[in-house]
Every structure is written in structure tokens, then in C-alpha cells.
Design a protein around this nucleic acid. Sequence first.
DNA 1: TTGTACGCGTTATCAG
DNA 2: CTGATAACGCGTACAA
Lengths: 332, 332
Amino acid sequence: MAEDRAGRQKPPTSQDVARLAGVSQSTVSYVLTGSRPISEATRRRVEAAILELGYHPNSGARTLRSRRSGVIGLMVPEADGDDGVLMVFVRTIAREARRHGYDILLVTAQEGADGIRRVVRTGVCEALILMEVDRHDERIAPVLASGLPFVTIGKPEEFPHGSVIDLDFEMLGRMVLERAHEEGCAHLLLFGALDHLRSRNDVSRFLAGVEDAAEEIPVAVVLDDGPLAEVPARARRLAAPHARTALFGLGGVRQVLFAMAASGALAQEGTVLLALGGEDLADVSGLLAPVPQIDPRRAEVSELAVSELVRLLRTEDATPRVTLVEPRWLEG
Amino acid sequence: MAEDRAGRQKPPTSQDVARLAGVSQSTVSYVLTGSRPISEATRRRVEAAILELGYHPNSGARTLRSRRSGVIGLMVPEADGDDGVLMVFVRTIAREARRHGYDILLVTAQEGADGIRRVVRTGVCEALILMEVDRHDERIAPVLASGLPFVTIGKPEEFPHGSVIDLDFEMLGRMVLERAHEEGCAHLLLFGALDHLRSRNDVSRFLAGVEDAAEEIPVAVVLDDGPLAEVPARARRLAAPHARTALFGLGGVRQVLFAMAASGALAQEGTVLLALGGEDLADVSGLLAPVPQIDPRRAEVSELAVSELVRLLRTEDATPRVTLVEPRWLEG
DNA sequence: TTGTACGCGTTATCAG
DNA sequence: CTGATAACGCGTACAA
């Protein structure tokens, strides 16, 4: 094996494979891509040579020629919500992408629209996944301009070439209110300053679901903007003599649970904490057992994001579509 | 601008830029790389053309020609520790890499050594960062074989071409024991089943530091393998009449803090929780204020990992080295 | 100071 | 069924 001046092994090329197998270089290529019928005999010789040399096709050359880099750009948001949750998405997406033969390149939201333009123009990415997309998101414009297939997790206003995968937050809202009613609650206290976050599309969809359901179900909805540590106290003040109060938030369940534990509220019967699961609650699982949890189905959302993107990539003239994953109550 | 059959915009090439600027293609290239003096006049014409066309050099072609992809592979561990912590590393590394002109490609630990071989042989990555490396790590072998520069976060036994960046866990161990003594503790209870994790190199280095310091400082070290929820009770049993007990663990501080809150141990004077900060403790910060915390300096570790890798990449015959970042007590 | 020409390793077209 | 051969877009040695 040849070595360059730095003493690094120079990987074998398809030319090397061809020589060893006694065929032409193009034949090697066809064996790899399968875009042309090859006789069983030569195929085996080529494959043996590939194995012997440990040959892997050069990514740069392949990309240059075919305009397909095999790389999907993943735009991750800045630290705002729960980083643990985010990492689950990232890891799942990376694993699924590999399963389909793609790699994941990180693009931080900090780079913004310019970041998109860069990876698109340089041709590093042949498709994009955007996380935590808002209704009006500055990143959508350059993506649309690129013409690349993309998937957003979060629902923007327009998505001509792109598909949308997300949890069905409206349904989530209805489910929470219904459960509060079933648990005999007169009030549903929503914590986490949701009122101030209406611009976020998941929040606004969730609130729409809650408010929609509240027109039919007699549960009073209270939006709490205060600090999470004071949620238990706030809930106690709401509690009517014979009615309980349900608590819910899209995030910060751990903090509230912590506050409840610290204030002794866990032992009381007046408040019912409903939780969105998956927010790394394993650490407090002992106390969570009796807490009804909703599965936000992040694994499914991640897997769908990838498989939908692959569909857009591989299908000619594939139509983008919106897929909302239904939240589910976790039993036990 | 030309469009291909899918209706996608075909990005301009350096040839297009050259035509517009009235120079040869190579001149454009030289302006970009700066590897040859260019007259002020033509440089401006070229730069104007680049701006006008929104030109970005094609990554595939550049990589093919120069063997430098501008991509650093980042191998992230499976879900084992705190995913929130991990995400901080990942985001910081991605941001720093961009600052130096590199992109980050995710490689999941699940792919193992084969994953390394793949990204190396295909030439997608020109360098690697490995997270949570053990003393004997199967991923090290293919990395060494590749001859690519790399940085590990975590200290393997051998690292011929690679540098090591990590927190100084031995010093951390000494600091914790010293602090326990200063706080008037007769016992230091280490939770989180550290005894069973001695194979992990950060754990073994930490324990070495603790045990080393324990030879000079009169604090009895107790390794606790029980569930985190029972740590407060365990600590109470240790407490001597006039001596307190210090608690520490490399992870799971939140769980222990939670257990202390639930059992009312926070109000007691008998136990002192010493915490490794940064493990997303913001949610419980109200209660943490009086808790002495050590800064694990993850941002610095991440930044150093990138800058050290860049040094290896850009410096001819750069010698790999080990850099241990000193932990610090956080005041206030 | 600038231009010409070649090759990086593939994919894909055109002959045979 | 298979082998030459032409791009793909850029970096750089060689000429001018």
C-alpha cells in the first residue's frame, strides 16, 4: 500500500480493485451501484478484490460526479428547552440515517440562514432536517431557495418542497383537558409561561387544542406565568373543596415535581400532576409511578423524519406531506 | 442560472466566476486559497464576481483534489450518562469547529470500530474527536490505523497520533476529599456505584485521586453501590454525633438532591452535598444555592478538543499531547 | 502577475 | 455482458 509524505496510508481506488480482479474500472463501479447487470463470475471476483483491499469508494469523487453526498444536514436549535430531550432526537436521527445509508452533519441554529446556504451551495448536504421550526422561520427561505428536499420537525406556514413531522400537539391539548376532567379536576393549571410562548408553534397548537376542548368540557384553564417552584402553592390556592386541580406543562415537569416533593405536595390529594414523558424522568421514577404520563413519541418522530426524508430523496417527484404523530397515554 | 431536470438551481462554479471576472479559472482558485500573490485589481474583480454569483466552492471537488474534506467526525457515546450534558459538548464542539472552518459529522458509538473505518476510508472525515474514551477502547485501533489526527475526550492507554483533552479527574478527587474535611466531615460517601465503574477511566482516575488524598487527610471514604434514592438514609446512618457526612458522585446529583428534598434531609445539618455542576441543575437551583459546586468546565474541554485538533491538522509534524483541565470550585 | 493543462476517483454514456 | 472514455469542479506544477 502506498504512503504519502505524512506516512498516511493511501486508500485503494476502484482502479486498484479493477487491476486485482482483472476487469475494467467501470465494471467495479457497476458492481457497486448495481445499475447494470453483471455476470455472477466477474461479480464474485470483483467482490473478492474489494474485500481483500478493504476498498471503500471515495466520497469526494462520488459526490462530485453524482451530486449526491450521502449527507443529511441536521439543524439543531440553540440551548432553550431540555438538552437531554434534544440529544435523544439527534442520536435517533443519526442512527436511522445510517440505517438508510446516510450520514448526519450538524448545523447549529446559531449559523442561521447563512449556515443553510453554505451547506447547500458547497454541496455537502443533499437534504436537510430542521428541528424546532417556528411558524415563520427565517431558515425556511434559504431551504426553499435551495430546492433540496427537507423535513421539518415543527410546522412552518409554508413548505413547498418539504415535509413536516411532529407530535400532534392539538390532540395533546385535548387529551390533557379530558384527563383532567376524568380525574375529577375543576381546574387545569398550565405552567411554564405558555402564554408568552404562543409564538412557538408547538405551544400555540397545544393551547388551541386545550381551548378547543374546554368549550365542551367543564374544566377551567389557568395559564400560569410564575416560577415553577411556586406552582404547588399556586395549585393549592386554586383547589376547591371537593374538586382537585390538574397540573401540566410542555416542559419543566421535573422542576415542578421537585417543588412538589420539597413542599410535601406529593402526599396531598388535591393536585394531580399530568406529565409529558420522556423528559428524562427516570431519575424521579420512583415518585412518578402514580403520575399519568403521555408518551411524546420522540423516537417515532425521529424515525419518521428520516424515513420521510429518504422517501423524498429516492422517489421521483415525491409530494411533501404533513405527518402528525398521535400522543399516547403510558399505562403503568 | 441553469436548472437540472428536477428544477433545482445548479450552483455556479469557479469557471462561472472566472468568466464574469474576465480571468482564468485558476486565478479564482488562487484568490480563494491565497497560495499565490494576486494583484489588488484582479482580486477585487474576482471577489465582486464571487459575491454577485453567490459562489461557494464545491465541497466534493475540493475534497477530491486536496484530500481535505473540512469535516471532523464526532463519535458520540450511546445513552448512558446524562444526555443533557452530552448535548452541551456536542453543540459546543460543533460551534467551535465552525469557527475554525470545519463541519461536524456525527458517528454514533453504535457503529463502533466499523463506523470509524467507514468514514476514514471513504474520506468523509479528515480528523476525529472521540468522546468518552475508555482506557482500552476498541475504537482506538482503527483510528490509529487510519493515521488521521484525532482527539479523545477521555484518556486511553495509547495515543500515538492523537491528543487527549479531559478534566483532571485525579485533582477532582483530591478537591472533593479536601473540601469534605474543611466542611468538618468525618465521612465521604461516594454514590453512583463507582466501585463497579472502575473500568471507566474517568472513574478510576477520580477514585485514585480520592484514595491518594485520603492517605493524608482524615476522612473515611465509603463507596455506596445502593440506589440513589436511598443515599440520604445511608448518609444518616453514617453520621457521627459531632461530625457531618459529605456526599458526592460523578453523576446523579439531581436524583440524590431530589431524594434529599423528598425525605426532608435538605433541612438537616448532618449531611453536606458536594456537587459536580453543569449537570443541568438549573431546575433545582433554588435549593442548590448553599451547595458547593465544582465546575467540570465542559465548555473549555470542548473548545480545547477542537482547537487542539485544529493544531494537529494545520501544524506539520505536530506532536500529540495530553491536556488536563483543572476543575474549579464555583463560588456563590 | 497571470494563464494552461493535468489529475484527483467516480459515475454514466457510448461502443463493442 | 463488458471496456474505453468523457465529464464533475477544483488545486497546483509548469509556462509565459
